[in-house]
Design a protein around this nucleic acid. Structure first.
Length: 791
DNA sequence: GCCTGATTTCTACCA
DNA sequence: ACTGGTAGAAATCAGGCG
């Protein structure tokens, strides 16, 4: 019989050296199924030295056959490696778990250059070779079998063929369960060895909401009923926020301590840590939306409530946020405990809302790059690109390079023009559409087309990058050219379809998620080639791409100037010119003709203000919105007071063009600030710990604040954001930084906020109009009657 | 020992 | 663990001064 299924999760098991691929899916009738495939052999390659005879190498291995009892097949194959034809031996092995050991021995055999693809996990190997993609439909011949294992599915099948892709767009009806929990300790970070799980709030996409609450400190029933609930609802997807790093590890330790089996999966195993720091729940997809928070650079402090607020899931102003430090107080007080329960329930509602907003994107990304839905979030951008490339490489017979450690050497990147400081009117922004990807396409820049200086010029000729003189085969099309053209085509096909659809329709959401996923991968592919951790790292590829980029932008500026278009600014792939539609049209056509690259007439600023600094400006759009770039307003490491003031100043300057009014506003704001009318939270400064605390060479305010928190028992590590305020007192700034949760308004050094936050942020803009920092301070003398009347 | 300017460290941004 | 280019604050260093 045949089964059509949508791929949810995959894992592998080895029993008596015999592997099984376990494919968890949903069939057309909505039945949850497990398909077991015992027919796929693990393998890796031995790359043969150029002058060696593969046959001879094979014989050498044969003589030592008894060392490799599970080696089942040796076969010579013709492949490509970085575009060059190579000879290799495909070594097939009965037990995938022995591949590491075998490859370590075989790589030393005479005539072997190196081992390749021995580091591809068996289950991924299965997906790649059979072109099985997660979050997609497939068809497979099967035979139903007994559910001997007692897994929680509607049917278990043995695969009788390898799966084949089936074209179907819509995903099946998935069961989604979201949860969040509340734990606390009298001091610092709660510890699962000591502190109970006070509350677990659960919600499902069937509309249920449940809370499991501890009786005093007895949380065994909490865990038990949570587990029971999960098993009864039987979700396909488990969603949470921060679950990979916090909730799951906590629940694991806690359940072990209480003697509870944390069987929330479909096969009676416990969640376990897997690749990329992800927690795997067998048969289900465990997604931590914290891993997707990076996709929202606008959200500076990536808490659940901030992400939910940003996505419009649950507005912050409608909530009462309870800080971790206050959990215990709320729990202990009979009047306040309901508020904590409400807070926890809302957290889970936020999780569900974020899942609703993000799941389509996560599924599309998983489908595009081919990584299972549960790892794709935890994989960093570089690995997402890499897995996408691995899949594509397989299709064209390219061997996957090994990961190697290499030293870091920087190379020259893009050009940034010196802005013309001041306010300019009617400025058009012209951008190159996907500049780096398109340069790679037009010049055939790719890891497999690079011709090193020692190599002779290939017959088809080469493209030579300016300045750096790296050469790339002009013909035939390289790996990158194929891959990137495909990605750009896919996106270009989606764009017109989106225009015809209602943004609320299911189809729109899926297509929009798809084009976003494609964009992410396209944009990261240049950077990937210059990343020393990349399998396909070739520095000249990255270096040549930026060199062509510089040449392109410089030539475009030349052309503009010749046509009488004044260029006031430019960065990497954009130029800012006086808006002159006819001349712009001419330039665009000329550039398209000459460089084969497309210029987008991106936007027009009614007015734009440049500071003397690069990468920091503010433009007024025709609809009245401000486009604020690089300035304090858009930075996460300035207090809200400074950002609010600067934003208002920009508004007054660009919309009303009244510097004096802006100065008055700043002075008034400062007096208000000194009167303590500004909310405490607007004084918090957030900074990230970018390395382990002991690695810091200097004493910085946020590091000192972090140390204070750690002394109070809080666990902090790399990547955590530290919120602190500056308190009054003598000494260096770092001595005056105090975690905001431990400080009170009365301690705050408001003069610091005046002189080091508000004034510099406002002066950055107003200095252009001859205003000094002193001029921004409220005058000590009382207002004259005239000044009073003017306000 | 104190002041000042130069240099280093650190973070977060832009494309 | 995608890249390089950039600004700006604060800490720290180095040298001059008396």
């Amino acid at each position: 019989m045949k089964k059509t299924f949508w791929l949810l999760d995959v894992n592998h098991e080895v029993k008596d050296h015999r592997p099984e691929v376990w494919i968890w899916g949903i069939d057309e009738e909505g039945k949850r199924i497990l398909i077991i495939d015992r027919n796929f052999l693990a393998y890796f390659y031995l790359l043969i030295k150029e002058k060696e005879n593969p046959q001879a190498v094979m014989e050498r291995i044969q003589t030592r056959k008894e060392d490799f009892p599970f080696l089942v097949k040796l076969k010579t194959v013709e492949k490509r490696f970085f575009g060059r034809p190579v000879k290799a031996i495909k070594v097939s092995c009965q037990d995938p778990d022995l591949i590491g050991r075998y490859s370590n021995v075989l790589r030393k055999v005479e005539g072997v250059e190196k081992c390749l693809e021995d580091d591809i996990r068996y289950s991924m190997r299965y997906l790649i070779d059979n072109d099985v993609t997660p979050c997609d439909w497939h068809e497979v011949k099967v035979e139903e079998t007994e559910n001997e294992l007692g897994v929680q599915v509607d049917g278990v099948y043995l695969a009788k063929s390898f799966p084949q892709g089936v074209r179907r767009t819509e995903a099946p009806q998935l069961r989604i369960l979201g949860f969040s929990m509340i734990c606390f300790s009298p001091k610092g970070t709660p510890k699962p060895e000591k502190n109970p799980v006070a509350i677990i709030s659960v919600a499902t996409n069937a509309g249920d909401e449940v809370q499991f609450v501890a009786e005093d400190s007895d949380d065994k029933p909490v865990l038990e009923s949570f587990i029971k609930y999960v098993r009864r609802f039987d979700p396909d997807i488990l969603v949470g926020y921060g679950t990979n790093r916090q909730d799951w590890p906590y629940l694991l330790v806690r359940s072990r301590k209480l003697g509870v089996d944390l069987y929330v999966d479909r096969a009676k195993t416990e969640p376990h840590r897997s690749v990329f720091g992800h927690v795997s729940v067998m048969g289900r997809v465990n997604i931590d939306f914290f891993d997707f928070a990076e996709d929202f650079p606008e959200v500076k402090v990536k808490t659940l409530e901030n992400v939910a607020d940003f996505l419009g899931v649950m507005k912050l102003e409608k909530r009462k946020i309870i800080e971790d430090v206050d959990f215990l107080t709320y729990w202990q007080s009979p009047e306040k405990r309901p508020l904590l329960l409400k807070f926890s329930k809302e957290n889970t509602q936020c999780v569900m809302g974020i899942a609703d907003a993000m799941l389509d994107f996560a599924m599309q990304l998983s489908n595009l790059v081919g990584l299972p839905l549960d790892y794709v979030g935890t994989a960093a951008v570089g690995f997402r690109v890499e897995w996408f490339l691995i899949r594509r490489a397989y299709k064209i017979g390219e061997l996957i390079p090994e990961r190697v450690e290499r030293p870091y050497f920087p190379y020259v990147g893009a050009i940034v023009l010196e802005p013309k400081p001041g306010v300019h009117e009617d400025i058009a922004v012209l951008d190159f559409k996907a500049m780096y990807p398109n340069i790679m396409i037009t010049q055939n820049v790719s890891p497999d087309t690079y011709v090193s200086p020692t190599e002779p010029e290939p017959p088809g000729g080469v493209n030579v990058a300016p300045e750096v003189n790296h050469r790339f085969r002009a013909e035939p099309p390289g790996f990158y050219k194929k891959v990137l053209s495909h990605l750009i085509d896919v996106r270009d096909e989606i764009t017109p379809k989106l225009e015809k659809l209602s943004p609320k329709s299911a189809e729109y959401r899926v297509l929009d998620a798809r084009q976003k996923a494609v964009k992410v991968i396209t944009n990261a592919s240049y950077g990937y080639t210059g990343w020393i951790g990349a399998r396909w790292y070739i520095k000249p590829v990255a270096e040549a791409t930026t060199a062509w980029g510089r040449q392109t932008i410089l030539n475009t500026i030349e052309l503009s100037k010749k046509s009488g278009l004044e260029v006031v600014y430019g960065d990497t792939d954009s130029i800012f010119v006086k808006d002159d539609p006819e001349k712009i049209k001419k330039i665009s056509e000329e550039v398209g003709r000459k460089f084969g690259l497309e210029i987008k007439h991106d936007k027009i600023y009614v007015r734009v203000l440049f500071t003397e600094a690069k990468k920091r400006y503010c433009g007024l759009l025709p609809d009245g919105r401000l486009d604020i770039v690089g300035l304090e307003v858009v930075r996460g490491d300035w207090a809200e007071v400074a950002k609010k003031v600067q934003e208002r100043v920009l508004e007054i300057i660009l919309k009303e063009q009244k510097p004096e009014k802006a100065v008055k506003f700043v002075r008034q704001y400062i007096s208000d600030l000194r009167q303590k009318t500004v909310p405490y939270r607007n004084l918090i400064i957030w900074k990230t710990l970018t390395k382990p605390i002991e690695k810091y060479a200097v004493r910085a305010p946020h590091v000192e604040a972090a140390r204070t928190l750690m002394k109070e028992g809080w666990d902090l590590s790399m990547g955590d954001k530290i919120g602190y305020v500056i308190v009054a007192g003598p000494g260096r700034l770092y001595e005056k930084a105090k975690p905001y949760v431990l400080a009170s308004y009365d301690e705050v050094d408001l003069e610091y906020y005046v002189s080091n936050q508000v004034v510099p942020a406002a002066a950055r803009i107003l200095a252009m109009f001859g205003v000094t920092k002193e001029g921004l301070l409220p005058s000590k003398t009382p207002k004259t009657l005239l000044e009073f009347m003017e306000d």
